[in-house]
Design a protein around this nucleic acid. Structure first.
Lengths: 285, 285
DNA sequence: TGCCGAATCATCAAATTTGAACAGTTGACG
DNA sequence: CGTCAACTGTTCAAATTTGATGATTCGGCA
């Protein structure tokens, strides 16, 4: 009972700062000791332990004897844990589900790198006779582990970016030699003027190669991407055959998009709100 | 209640750190001895044994008399690969070490897929200004995780075989467009008549593309490969500039090989060395 | 098969870590 | 201005971990 209810979590600013420092420290060094943190933060060991308790149940770290460590991610498991830290999971999940339902058996599809397309990979493992071309090591990994005999997974090759995409001359050259029935692409920004865009120059180049390899471009983007412009444009709105987004998209944006894009699908996200931190913040406000 | 069995830990270095080092060490070398780990980690034999006990029941390794080995059965990884990597671990390790010492900084090297070349990857992470081209997802993974700014890792792309090699038209096309200072290649068989060979047709094709991309072919093969002939030949003995094998090779074979190959290096598996993981841990402690 | 050195296991003491209880302090709110 | 809830620090007993000691078992070799 000492570790009270959620009400007690609405802490002073001081506690929150400590929590941030602790998490940052663990991210940086991988492991921290209670005694080190106590010295670093200028508080007692007991306080540090209580902090670690909270952060542990919140899923931000893993308490071990003597300190705490990063939470181990099971890369081969479902995206749940790792993806939890990402924003708009519910929306992305709904979008990925909707996108999966548009994949036709027996074809060859391209899948670009990104968190939404990564989710998409999980939903197409059961589609029959599919050939998938991707520049995402993660997407390939998911499909590879499924081990279906009627599945062909082609990696484009190239240099790996921090976000796990393969880019560069090798990737684009490979894509230039291929023709795909459909391409599923995640983007970082959508606007009427700049079209679809991304902040990474290399990824933009690879994505343009994807676009050139198909007549059927399907863009996956949750509503937070609207009116965001990345450094480099990938394609104009009109080049997309279909855009799949979620119900958070403003009606005005929806009608604007419909003017340029043939099909605009709006996926309804499941209710998926378990973020304790968020709730906590709401309470304080 | 979450309070685990595995994360119970320690005094100077958190037990968690020890566990990570132990698992990494086993994955890298295949086998470790209790006494080695004790000196490596700076703790007593008894502590190491207790750690191995925990990691054993956790399924991360297999305790044997004198130390521990990789677990043979199902891991999260591919069975084919793991199973193979167990055999002749000491020899492969020695060969990989010898091969790493022939890698010149500042160049571009190719590394084919295989268990020996996978080990090689661990030993070249510290070589400066290196560009690596590989068709092995595992090799790329190892080098990618090192995150060195002066490292460029290029994946060839292609279709993934059960043994984790990328093969097919995409892989060969990529390799045809590249020129490498040296290529490090593992093979499944060596004989005077058939030269270097492998049982997998697709891998053979990719490997031939590797050979064609360089003037300096370095073949890695432990002594069990001698007089083994795979389905498909990759290259003749004369095409190799260097062959690196181990002391288990019969003298007769050695002289035969020397007739055709410019350099034949024989690595001694008994030779033990220091390793980077240890120094890093010491620095933290 | 039997022997010997090495490895393992069981047990215990010392050192460290942990959690619970209690008390003091701070800030919010009626 | 007083009350109350929450947070923090201190103390102390219990639990965990570690290394050492000695008995036992294992594995290689003649």
């Amino acid at each position: 009972m000492v570790k009270g209810s959620m009400d007690t979590a609405a802490a002073r600013v001081l506690a929150r700062q400590r929590h941030e420092v602790i998490v940052a420290e663990i991210r940086r060094r991988g492991v921290v000791r209670v005694s080190d943190l106590a010295t670093l933060l200028g508080v007692s060991d007991m306080t540090v332990r209580r902090d670690l308790d909270l952060l542990d149940v919140a899923g931000l770290l893993l308490k071990v004897h003597g300190g705490a460590t990063l939470r181990v991610e099971r890369t081969t498991d479902e995206p749940g844990f790792e993806a939890k830290s990402l924003r708009n999971m519910g929306e992305k999940h709904a979008i990925a589900m909707a996108a999966a339902s548009t994949v036709r058996p027996g074809g060859a599809v391209g899948i670009s790198a990104g968190t939404t397309t990564w989710q998409l990979a999980y939903h197409i493992v059961d589609i029959a006779d599919l050939t998938v071309v991707t520049n995402s090591v993660r997407v390939a990994e998911v499909l590879h582990l499924a081990r279906r005999p009627d599945r062909t997974v082609v990696l484009t090759g190239g240099i790996r970016t921090p976000s796990d995409a393969l880019v560069g001359p090798v990737a684009t050259a490979t894509l230039r030699s291929l023709h795909l029935d459909a391409v599923y692409m995640g983007v970082h920004g959508i606007s009427e003027r700049a079209g679809f865009s991304t902040p990474n120059l290399m990824e933009a180049e690879t994505n343009r190669a994807f676009v050139a390899a198909t007549d059927r471009l399907i863009v996956l983007a949750d509503h937070t991407k609207w009116n965001v412009t990345g450094l480099s444009s990938i394609a104009s709105l009109a080049q997309a055959e279909t855009l799949i987004t979620d119900t958070g998209i403003p009606p005005a944006a929806r009608s604007t998009l419909s003017e340029h894009i043939g099909h605009v699908l709006v996926a309804d996200p499941m209710f998926h709100d378990n973020d304790a931190t968020m709730t906590e913040l709401r309470r304080r406000a």
